[in-house]
């Protein structure tokens, strides 16, 4: 079942078409990755859903019920849009308290801070927070309303590797509790680890809309690198597979993961052991296409 369905969404800022008649859906209980280079329209989609920006046209369904206005999405969603901003003269606890009061919810703020790893800095004023701490606090505020859907815009920005991994773990933990999570980012590798469904945007249009399962089944570009000269048997085998030779010892094939395994075994048997096998998934291939 889809928690959110959007059809024919269009948005223009003056003459610039930012979103061009796009349609997409968010499946309930999944982690969805919204990908694209800067300026693709990722943030614009999220801002329309958050009610910050008004779409020129579009239809919306929430839990299969048609809605007339996009800001209704707020009723089931916790948002973290753009860089995290809080009231700098208030502490983390005070910021959360104000937001909690605004939403008429009663939540144990200490538990929430512990969840995002900020239990020791709750009384510290936000102006003294690092970017990573603010990102965590931003995640915490999205949970204040016990939402069904979380929308996180570029949550990995400014995080060190530890912080990054902690956030991945947190997102996965929240998803395990049943929350649908949409993560928007331009960091392809990180999102590939996390998401179960991918929507790739380019110039306001959807370039690719694919689930992880479909990705795994699809044939990917695989690059093989050899040090030693290829035997005739190996050359024959590779030609049968329609390999594209970049040089004598470097070639590209389109294979699914199982086929890669089988080919490597066959090559080894023929006396050629590849020194490097690099897989470019369909998602990576498309992403590179649009960013080059």
């Amino acid at each position: 079942m889809n928690i959110l369905e959007v059809e024919n969404l269009s948005l223009a800022y003056g003459k610039q078409q930012v979103l061009d008649d796009i349609s997409f859906e968010f499946k309930k209980g999944k982690i969805i990755g919204l990908l694209g280079p800067n300026g693709a329209g990722k943030s614009s989609i999220l801002k329309v859903l958050a009610g910050l920006v008004f779409a020129d046209s579009g239809k919306l369904k929430i839990n299969n019920q048609s809605q007339t206005e996009f800001h209704k999405v707020k009723s089931i969603t916790g948002f973290h849009i753009d860089s995290p901003s809080f009231y700098p003269f208030l502490s983390a606890k005070e910021n959360l308290y104000l937001l909690m009061k605004m939403n008429q919810k009663q939540i144990d703020i200490d538990v929430l801070l512990r969840k995002v790893g900020l239990e020791n800095v709750g009384s510290k004023k936000v102006r003294f927070f690092s970017t990573g701490m603010k990102q965590r606090l931003a995640i915490a505020q999205t949970l204040l309303r016990s939402p069904e859907l979380l929308i996180l815009d570029e949550p990995f920005n400014g995080l060190d590797p530890n912080g990054f991994q902690d956030l991945i773990d947190l997102i996965q933990k929240l998803n395990a509790e049943g929350i649908t999570i949409v993560v928007s980012s331009h960091l392809l590798n990180e999102l590939e680890q996390l998401a179960e469904h991918f929507i790739l945007l380019h110039h306001g249009k959807i370039a690719l809309d694919i689930s992880k399962k479909e990705l795994q089944k699809s044939k990917n570009k695989v690059e093989f690198n050899f040090i030693s000269e290829l035997t005739e048997a190996s050359i024959q085998l590779l030609n049968d597979k329609k390999a594209e030779f970049i040089s004598e010892n470097r070639l590209i094939l389109k294979l699914n993961p199982k086929e890669v395994e089988q080919l490597v075994l066959a090559l080894v048997h023929n006396g050629n052991s590849p020194v490097k096998v690099e897989t470019l998934t369909l998602l990576q291939e498309k992403y590179l296409e649009i960013t080059v």
Partner: peptide, 14 residues
């Protein structure tokens, strides 16, 4: 100026 407008308007209040 603080950027908290996004925070404010994404809460439940209109």
């Amino acid at each position: 100026e603080q950027g908290t407008i996004r925070l404010l308007l994404t809460q439940s209040a209109s």
